[in-house]
Design a protein around this nucleic acid. Structure first.
Lengths: 236, 236
DNA sequence: ATTACTAGTAGACGAGTAA
DNA sequence: TTTACTCGTCTACTAGTAA
């Protein structure tokens, strides 16, 4: 059974919900300029702005006063309302919740199992034409080998997110008549060790990702085939 | 009387409020990772996170589905939930409301009465040492005179806001043995005409502001002493 | 364990109205 | 005009329970 503030009859209106309704009114008042100043607004007008009756708006104002979120100068004709510091703080709390939602798309976490590749990645990474760019664009010269990770079934679809991300493009080149294509890298880390996920541009979708790092990751992290690692791929 | 969506019995739950409650649940789901991915969450857990019963959380989920804000993969044991594009859009709309609140401190409106100054501002403004800087830093060469405005009592405290603002600093200089101090300007407009409020750095608090503009404001706006003008002072 | 229906109820709502 | 009280309606809530 749920705890409510004072009692627990079967009724409605959790504290949180009630706060939600109040915040809505508070935000409207803020938008009308109540953050900077007293604004002159009747309960009728506030009600209209909030899509509710004058009576309900009046009640909301009383509730906001009760919370200490606004102060009021109840003149003879028209009331003037202003947010208090406490009210602004309450509003900012809400705002930061949304910030957390919208400004935390900075990484994707994928889990995968360490596997042994076929040495192809290693061959590519060691090409001199790539090496220089790794250093200048990623900030490190990769250890001569890649760590192959088979992304778990549950996380495979997360890789699709990388499609919509610019990443860091390593230019291809030609050498001894063979063409080496562009390579897209995504900065990442495994247990806070800086690395990068390498995606050959022209490759169809795979569940195996190749990771380059300035250290020998298998040795540094003591990994063996079948171990599951968490890779944090940075985007943006 | 207020319009509601379907009917207008005396009851509760405006559309807007209902949306507010839904948005709260939607945000929680988003914070739990439902923006990027399906997350596995029972109605019991969601209820706990939202401070409500399992039953209510279950209902919320059905409502969110009804709005097309989430999609659900109702497995045998646990449901998996993800936000739809429509859901993210709804959430972003909310977010932008808060952004408007917190990121719209870009101007202050002050009202004041046009008065005749003592020509001191005019003397300062016309100094060559200032004129060049006005042009390069404000983008216009002021008309040789200032408009003096006595800020109304009700708006005087708004001027205090300018204290916390950088503004545009015009460097002082020395000429004929006399020192002209730094001058702080705040870009502004009066009836959409670009101008700037001038505040001598070393001056105590006054209720009279001096305004420079490339036009002769009195003539252009047809102002005479005692007319009340609205000055929009830009900050940041 | 889940999800979600039914039933009963507390309280949020607007209408009417006083001050 | 205002603000805000009382009051009856209606609904969003939780408990109980089925599947």
């Amino acid at each position: 059974m749920l705890k409510r503030e004072t009692d627990e009859r079967g009724g409605t209106c959790l504290e949180e919900e009630m706060e939600g309704r109040l915040i809505l009114a508070l935000r409207k008042i803020a938008l009308m300029g109540g953050m900077h100043d007293y604004i002159s607004i009747s309960s009728r007008e506030l009600g209209e702005a909030l899509g509710m009756s004058q009576q309900s708006a009046s009640k909301r104002i009383l509730e906001l006063l009760g919370q200490g979120w606004i102060v009021r100068d109840l003149g003879a004709r028209r009331q003037r309302i202003k947010l208090t510091d406490k009210g602004m703080e309450a509003l900012r709390r809400e705002y930061s919740e949304y910030q957390r939602v919208f400004e935390t798309r900075d990484h994707v976490l994928v889990h995968g199992e360490v596997v042994t590749g076929m040495g192809e990645g290693q061959y590519y990474v060691n090409q001199e034409g790539y090496q220089e760019q790794f250093l200048s664009l990623l900030g490190f010269k990769p250890y001569e080998g890649t760590l192959n990770v088979r992304v778990l079934q549950t996380d495979v679809h997360k890789l699709a997110l990388l499609q919509g991300v610019k990443g860091i493009r390593i230019k291809g080149f030609e050498r001894n008549g063979r063409t080496f294509g562009d390579v897209l890298c995504h900065p990442a880390d495994i247990q806070n060790i800086e690395c990068a996920v390498v995606v050959p541009t022209r490759s169809h979708y795979e569940d195996i990702i190749e990771i380059i790092c300035k250290y020998h990751l298998r040795r540094t992290l003591g990994l063996k085939d079948g171990d599951v690692v968490e890779v944090r791929i940075h985007i943006d």
